[in-house]
């Protein structure tokens, strides 16, 4: 065991680099996913069928074809069509497209959950369509959607472990390296899982802080208990819904 600890200390800088790669994938993917989620979520509510139908198709396609297949398709098949992306870009695009599609359902649901009276009041006050969404509806929907987006963010972090197989040196890869160095599978994987657990915990704390702020902005009081809550509760919207 002391040998293991020595190997762990030796491996720390590399493990740190793995964490950086995993975070780049996670945050990059999350940023892309968020932009897509808002755009698709708003488009799914559009009155025009010309906007709604393609949106539906895109969302169902990226939810339905499996993240693993999408990632390897971008890695192996896209170059055949003349687009060669860096491994990091493949990872971010795959995670972003897949979780953007899931996220759009969260955005759509949260927009629907804003009381209809709020929409009516914006109309009675002659606020324009863009203005009403940006200033009145989205801030309220935002507070509703954060817990569900937190679930998706953790799912996305977990999905990023695939990056090892497209030649990126993320946390998952460094676990394998640690195993080779220590020749102790249990030790190295326990360390690796704890690293992922810690990352998930930190991301959850960050999202909870965002939620407290968003709730305070819509006048719902924050509770300290929510800030230090361990992990988000997955719901079928968060991880399951196909």
């Amino acid at each position: 065991m002391p040998d293991n600890l020595q190997s762990l200390v030796d491996a720390l800088p590399r493990l740190g680099e793995g964490v950086v790669v995993t975070l780049q994938l996670t945050l990059g993917g999350a940023a892309l996913a968020f932009v897509l989620a808002v755009a698709l979520g708003l488009a799914a509510r559009a009155r025009s069928l010309w906007l709604r139908t393609p949106t539906r198709v895109v969302v169902e396609f990226f939810r339905g074809t499996s993240l693993v297949v999408q990632l390897f398709w971008l890695f192996y098949v896209l170059p055949v069509f003349g687009f060669r992306l860096e491994s990091m870009a493949v990872g971010i695009v795959a995670l972003g497209l897949n979780y953007g599609a899931y996220g759009s359902e969260v955005v759509r649901g949260s927009l629907n959950a804003v009381p209809v009276g709020q929409w009516e009041a914006t109309k009675a006050l002659s606020l324009g369509p863009v203005h009403r969404v940006r200033r009145v509806i989205l801030p309220q929907a935002w507070a509703l959607m954060i817990p569900l987006l937190t679930n998706l963010l953790i799912q996305l972090l977990k999905g990023s472990a695939l990056a090892t197989y497209i030649l990126l040196h993320d946390v998952n890869y460094e676990i394998g390296q640690l195993r080779i160095a220590t020749r102790d599978t249990f030790f190295s994987y326990a360390v690796g899982l704890l690293v992922y657990f810690a990352l998930a915990y930190v991301l959850t704390l960050g999202m909870n802080a965002l939620e407290v702020r968003a709730k305070r902005r819509v006048g719902a009081g924050p509770t300290l208990r929510e800030v230090v809550r361990l992990a988000p509760v997955p719901t079928s919207v968060g991880a399951g819904a196909a």
């Binding site: 972090l157 977990k158 994987y189 657990f197 959850t204 997955p234």
Partner: peptide, 19 residues
């Protein structure tokens, strides 16, 4: 539950497979 839920399925699979 928390540990299993917030770590990658992929890593868990390989872990148990190797063990």
């Amino acid at each position: 539950v928390e540990l299993v839920r917030s770590t990658p399925l992929l890593v868990q699979l390989v872990f148990v497979y190797l063990m």
